[in-house]
Structures are given as structure tokens and as C-alpha cells.
């Protein structure tokens, strides 16, 4: 049974068809890539899956449930978590609080428990805090726990964002250009980091990336989008040889991509 299945997902922005007939199956434990030139509709696909946009047509099945039309926070609670193309941490909050608030979907206590400081509230707060610290330690960010997120260097902020996405204990993690703005050294670290997430937490990962080195090295399966259409799907080697993909990326023969 696939973890995520999209069936003919189509999305319009007004008259513009941003995504058309997008079909994909992701099995539990896979590491899948989504690539394509700028404006191909990759982030739109992520926004559709996470509920930020509501798909105009088609079905998105996650864990045997159609999630089209569910509010984003509920989709997050069901187990799809994501990062953003540009960092969207809660800047004024500490790193620890960022990770704690990301567990919002799992809070069981209600206002009465807070106001009366009942054991149910205090126990859960302790559990949330312990879980957050565990995550930070696991990814070597514990030293920065008490710093406001905006004070961290760019690469660290990217990592905090990934840890924040993991804090919700997702089954599927969507990474939107995790390597954007990173130098080769940082990309190397990021690749190790992503593989560690999969091996240590067993999370299925689906990522958008422009850095071909990263995509071709770690993804087992890659989908290529161009102008909203899926033009190719397959393993890294197939994609690299696919003529349609080369055309979409290179256009003319002599041009070069990084």
C-alpha cells in the first residue's frame, strides 16, 4: 500500500494550469525527488499535498484517506510535514520553542488544564519539552536551544527548519529546496543529514531540489515536472539520459547547468 498516492491532481491559478494530471505513488521508506525548471509547478505540488492550496481536480490519498480539502493543520497532524523554499521559522521564538510549537497537533490538554495547571497539562508539557530536546540533541542543535531562531547562521536555520518539521513526528517529510543557498561543503553535510533522518527516524522523504548532485546521489526515484506536466519518472540514471528532461533543462545543447 502506498503512503501517498496522487490521482490526476490538477490545479488552476485563475486560467493558468499550474499542475496538470499529476500522478505519483510514494511507498513507505522511499526517498523520492521532484525536479524541474523554475516555475514548473514543483512547490505548487507541495502546497497541494500539504493543504496550503486546495486541488482543483483529482484526489490525494494519504494513508488510505482522501486529504483534499482538509485544513493544513489537520494534514500535518495526520503525518505530512514540510519545510519551505525560503526559511519560515518563527524568528523571535527560541529554537526550542520552535520545535515545541511544531508538536501543536499532538497537544491533548485544553484551556482548563492550563488555567488550573492540572497534572495532565504539566505532564504533557514535560513530554513535549523532552521530545524537543531529544530532537535537538539528535541533530546537534541542543547548544542553540535557548537562542532566538533568527540569531542562527543560515545553514543552521535550514537544519532547525527540518528538525521542526520532524518534531511533529511525520510519516512523510517534504523538503522544499533544502540545499538552496548552500555551498558545496554544506550540501555534502546536508546529504548526510537527510540520510540520517531516514535511517534513524524511518521517515519517508520527498524533496524538491535544483542541486543535481544532491538529487542524483540520494534520491531513489525522481519525477520531473515542466510547465505543470510530468515529463519523466524513474531512477537517477534513467532521468539523466532522458531526452525530454535534457531538453527541458538545457534547451540548447551548449548551455550548462550546475
Amino acid at each position: 500500500m502506498p503512503l501517498l498516492k496522487t490521482e490526476n491532481v490538477t490545479h488552476f491559478f485563475g486560467g493558468l494550469k499550474a499542475v496538470s494530471d499529476f500522478n505519483l505513488r510514494i511507498e513507505p521508506g522511499e526517498l523520492v525527488g521532484l525536479i524541474g525548471p523554475n516555475g514548473a509547478g514543483k512547490t505548487t505540488v507541495f502546497n497541494l499535498v500539504t493543504g496550503a492550496y486546495r486541488a482543483t481536480e483529482g484526489r490525494i490519498i494519504f494513508d488510505d484517506q482522501d486529504i483534499v480539502g482538509l485544513p493544513p493543520h489537520q494534514i500535518n497532524k495526520m503525518g505530512i510535514s514540510r519545510t519551505f523554499q525560503t526559511i519560515r521559522l518563527w524568528n523571535e521564538m527560541t529554537v526550542l520553542d520552535n520545535i515545541k510549537v511544531a508538536q501543536h497537533g499532538h497537544i491533548q490538554y485544553d484551556l482548563k488544564d492550563i488555567f488550573l495547571q492540572l497534572p495532565r497539562y504539566r505532564n504533557q508539557e514535560q513530554a513535549i519539552e523532552a521530545q524537543a530536546m531529544k530532537m535537538l540533541k539528535l541533530f546537534n542543535l541542543a547548544d542553540h536551544a535557548q537562542q532566538p531562531a533568527r540569531n542562527l547562521p543560515y545553514g543552521q536555520q535550514r537544519r532547525v527548519e527540518i528538525v521542526r518539521a520532524l518534531a511533529a513526528n511525520p510519516k512523510l517529510l517534504l523538503l522544499d529546496e533544502p540545499a538552496a543557498g548552500m555551498n558545496p561543503q554544506e550540501i555534502e553535510e546536508l546529504m548526510v543529514f537527510i540520510q540520517r533522518i531516514r535511517s534513524e527516524l524511518g521517515v519517508t522523504i520527498w524533496l524538491i531540489e535544483h542541486q543535481m548532485r544532491l538529487v542524483m546521489n540520494i534520491c531513489e526515484r525522481i519525477t520531473v515536472l515542466d510547465f505543470g506536466e510530468t515529463i519523466a519518472e524513474g531512477g537517477p540514471d534513467d532521468i539523466q539520459r532522458n531526452t525530454k528532461v535534457i531538453e527541458a533543462y538545457l534547451g540548447v545543447e551548449d548551455e550548462e547547468i550546475s
Partner: peptide, 8 residues
């Protein structure tokens, strides 16, 4: 971002 990260 809050809504997408699970905050209702």
C-alpha cells in the same frame, strides 16, 4: 507557516 506546521 504556523497553520502548515500543525497549529490550528
Amino acid at each position: 507557516a504556523s497553520e502548515l506546521m500543525g497549529v490550528n
